[in-house]
Amino acid sequence: MESVLFYIFAVAALISAVAAVTRIDPLMSALWLVGFFIPAAALMALLGAPVLAALVVMVSASVAMVMAIFVIMLIDPKMRQRQRLVRFGKILGVAASGYLAIVMAIAVAAPPFTASPSSGDYFESPATLGRVVISRYALPFELVGIMLLTAAVAAVIIGRREASS
């Protein structure tokens, strides 16, 4: 049952990832990206992290996509599409990524192939994650909060129109 679900979500995630990077129109690309994050979140739920799955759907698939679509709508449709053309750089990019994939696949494809250990309530419980984040990783947690605040302030400052010009 678990492997059937894995293959369904894996195929869905791969197809939507490929579609997201190959569409000409960025709007379609953004919609495919939402379609990528949902099976990715489902895979995380399958891996015993339901809280993170919910977070990924809420943060990535919703907030980021609302912002992306907002930005895409801001840009004139005629300005954002262009015909496909094949260039040396594209061939090189695909070749480099394929090489990267092969090297990483060789690196991870070494035995032992073991089934997952039974996870139990301690690992899957949201309380465990909360306790780890608040106690042992309290300082990184606060730093992330400061980073998000800085990012929000930076976004406002960069994004506002120049008053003088």
Binding site: A13, L14, A17, V21, A101, A105
Partner: peptide, 10 residues
């Protein structure tokens, strides 16, 4: 790895 390579290629 496959998804990462797709993203890197993009």
């Amino acid at each position: 790895v496959a998804i990462f390579a797709v993203g890197a290629a993009g």
